[in-house]
Amino acid sequence: MPDDRELRSTGSGQTLPTDTFPGQAAVDEMVVMRQEPAPETDEALARRPLGLLFWLALGWVGLVVLLAVIANLLPLPNPNLQNYAAINVGPSLHHLLGTDDLGRDLLSRIIYGARVSLVVGFGAVGIGMAIGGTLGLISGFRGGKLDIVLNAASFVILAFPAIVAVIAIVAFWGQTLAKITIIIGVATIPVLFRVVRASSLAYANRDFVVAARTLGATSTRIVFKEILPNVIPVAVAFGLIAVAGVIVLEGSLAFLGLSVALPTPSWGNIISEGTSNGNLSTNPYILMWPALAMFLLLLSINLIGDRLRQRFDVREGLL
């Protein structure tokens, strides 16, 4: 897409005086495009390399995922092992991040806790994308009654206080990792539906799709060959931002004791433990480490998502 303009800049205006066709030629166009403050727009950013920050962020997310996956293989004490001989120990060689008020190793709790954030974050968005994304793709492409109904439904559901519903359902149905992932996953369906639908709709009306239709291509073929490849980047970029949102939601639930049942560690419930029993004054590490871990993970995921969004030239306000 960014190349469109460059292609146009050499052609157009074969005859005179036909200035009335839409899209002026090279220079006139450049003026329109380059008004003050001549900023580096998202389009310009799209062509820049992804940048060091992006790779650092990706590296951090990769490291967290890796540690969470191989946690069992690491020389870590059991995250729930209470060692009364080593209560509220500061960071040391023995306990790299120290221990909490029950003598549990904080590094181990944080690495195991990452599993919860990651599984819920990616799992829920996976569920939401599989259902909401598929519906959005079809709805945006097909249009018609189906689209009207689904679109209206998504509006109504979005007006529903999702947080209340999630809290209530989690509390009543059960606090297991799988159930929480499913509940939050279902809650993300309407938002992901809207994002993918908007993008699918935009491409369904592009010239190349219209051309493919006129040439008699089947719907399935158009969806897979023309629309899906264009929608996927948008879905990935927004999906990552949604992952960050879901991790926040899970953390909030865990903070309230409404995520996975104790004593399974998750970053939200470690933070919560850090604020209770006077730990804030006696051992601020219990709060600090998971807060820092959460901050860095969210920062990294948002950075990656935003950078991809720019690269794929998606407007920020699409949601």
Binding site: G251, S252, G268, A291, M294, L296, L298, N302
Partner: peptide
């Protein structure tokens, strides 16, 4: 700021 939800 985006990476600092209320519970953090």
């Amino acid at each position: 700021l985006l990476a600092l939800p209320p519970f953090v």
